[in-house]
């Protein structure tokens, strides 16, 4: 009987600590920017789901491709239909380990997140640099990095080759709040 109590207590303790150690945002922002001689293209997604697991020092991000909003409707249409084929691949994901998670303080700290980025059905191993800060019980992470379109098998027809950069700048800003419930 005593053992049972101990087991129950341990189980409860694990549940409680787990619950406290998750941080999440459902309205993370990702923007990307393509700079080319002919035109600049920018798009913004404000519905990114990002979860930080402080216990495991990991983070997981899910992105809806159709949530990227462009200035011009035609660009958005081309992006979804021709380039990332969002009907076939509706989501992009990133899962990784925050390498120096314990160094995050209430001042901006440089961290590296090593993990797998999946876009357009192709998965690439990446190390992404970010600035992290833990303030008022929230974990804010922001930064930017470049991705190469050909790495993810995104074909750009030669007609519009000059309109779209081969390397796209991706910026992110996540304000993770403690996960309740």
């Amino acid at each position: 009987m005593k053992n049972l109590y101990i087991v129950c207590f341990c189980f409860l303790a694990v549940c409680l600590t787990n619950a406290q150690e998750r941080y999440l945002t459902k309205s993370g922002e990702i923007t990307f920017f393509s700079e080319s001689p002919l035109e600049n293209i920018a798009a913004k997604n404000s519905q990114v789901l990002s979860i930080v697991d402080a216990g495991k020092k990991q983070m997981a991000i899910s992105i809806l491709m159709k949530s990227f909003m462009f200035e011009k409707a035609l660009m958005q249409e081309h992006f979804n239909e021709n380039y990332v084929e969002s009907d076939k691949y509706p989501k992009a994901t990133f899962r990784g380990a925050i390498l120096n998670f314990d160094t995050i303080t209430d001042k901006e700290t440089k961290v590296e997140v090593k993990g797998k980025l999946t876009i357009h059905g192709i998965t690439k191993e990446m190390v992404i640099k970010a600035l992290a800060v833990k303030k008022d019980n929230a974990i804010v992470m922001q930064g930017d990095f470049f991705i190469t379109l050909s790495d993810f098998n995104v074909d750009i027809p030669s007609v519009v080759e000059k309109n779209i950069a081969k390397e796209i700048k991706v910026s992110f800003n996540f304000n993770h709040q403690p996960f309740k419930k």
Binding site: K26, Q47, L49, S62, L64, K66, S67, M69, P90, K91
Partner: peptide
């Protein structure tokens, strides 16, 4: 509607 993550998202 743009999809489903933890929640269904409408923009």
């Amino acid at each position: 509607c743009t999809g489903f993550l933890m929640d269904v998202v409408l923009v």
